[in-house]
């Protein structure tokens, strides 16, 4: 735990002490704001529940991009700058490196999500939405973002270049999002498997986004996070042997 804590603090400080962290956060808020203005409020007279739903939808897209973008540097940068050798030779296990870095990125991502809360609060003032709706929506966004983060870390552990890690992470994430439309064209049991693995439609869009909490959706996201973190750890282990 101590090793995780040290890596966590070091990574979080990297985000918070560099202007780049704030630039990224401001940029993502700006993108979220543009989407909110253009596609949520810009469509005219809309029920407040629908406004909130669309807000979660567009923030869900932004949060996935943010998750991948934040995660790709975590391991690939160490490799690019050859500091991975220091990590490999220090008395820290691979799993601790991955978990520490993941938690730091997750806290930063959660902070960015928290900064966007003023948009649904504006809806709350003008419409009829409940606090529980906000909580469930934000829980969904956090889980979705964490899943994308874990995918990004896995991609980062695979590649040496951050750009390649970004492309790999984006491809894996996109495939997991596109599994649902693909599943529609398949027969059982592949259909069920693909639908079950889908990252967006069945677990976020039909659940958290519509203010419906499903325990199964939460378990799914935790499983995805665990699986990709495990993959990242195993990849890091395997790279030691190369």
């Amino acid at each position: 735990m101590r090793a995780i804590s040290i890596i966590f603090r070091r990574e979080l400080a990297t985000y918070l002490h560099s202007p780049m962290g704030y630039v990224v956060a401001a940029l993502l808020l700006l993108v979220d704001g543009i989407l909110f203005q253009t596609y949520v409020l810009g469509v005219g007279r809309t029920l407040s529940a629908d406004v909130l739903r669309f807000f979660f939808m567009y923030t869900g897209i932004v949060v996935q991009i943010a998750g991948i973008a934040l995660a790709v540097r975590l391991v690939a940068e160490e490799r690019q700058q050859n500091t991975i050798v220091l990590l490999n030779t220090s008395p820290v296990r691979d799993v601790e490196i991955i978990v520490g870095k993941f938690l730091a990125a997750l806290v930063f991502l959660a902070g960015m999500l928290l900064l966007s809360i003023y948009m649904p609060l504006l809806i709350m003032v003008n419409g009829k939405i409940a606090v529980s709706q906000l909580l469930v929506g934000y829980l969904g966004l956090l889980l979705l973002g964490a899943a994308s983060l874990s995918i990004g870390i896995f991609a980062s552990s695979l590649a040496r270049q951050q750009l390649i890690a970004l492309v790999v992470g984006a491809v894996i994430n996109s495939i997991m999002v596109l599994l649902f439309p693909l599943a529609k064209r398949l027969d059982e049991p592949l259909k069920d498997v693909f639908q079950g693995l889908d990252l967006w439609w069945s677990h976020f869009q039909d659940g958290f986004m519509k203010s419906v909490f499903n325990l199964s959706d939460m378990v799914y996201y935790l499983a995805v996070i665990y699986f990709f973190l495990l993959l990242a750890t195993k990849t890091l282990e395997a790279k030691r042997w190369q």
């Binding site: 529940a49 009829k128 939405i129 409940a130 529980s132 709706q133 909580l135 469930v136 079950g196 519509k210 203010s211 419906v212 909490f213 499903n214 325990l215 199964s216 378990v219 799914y220 499983a223 665990y226 699986f227 495990l230 993959l231 195993k234």
Partner: peptide, 29 residues
């Protein structure tokens, strides 16, 4: 093997969660 077992375990877990799902509609009411 550990990745495959983890994947299998997670798939079974997700399936059990699906069967024993707790659903709460928290929309404004």
């Amino acid at each position: 093997l550990s990745i495959a077992l983890a994947a299998a375990f997670l798939m079974v877990t997700c399936n059990v969660a699906e069967q024993r799902n707790i659903r709460r509609d928290v929309s404004y009411f």
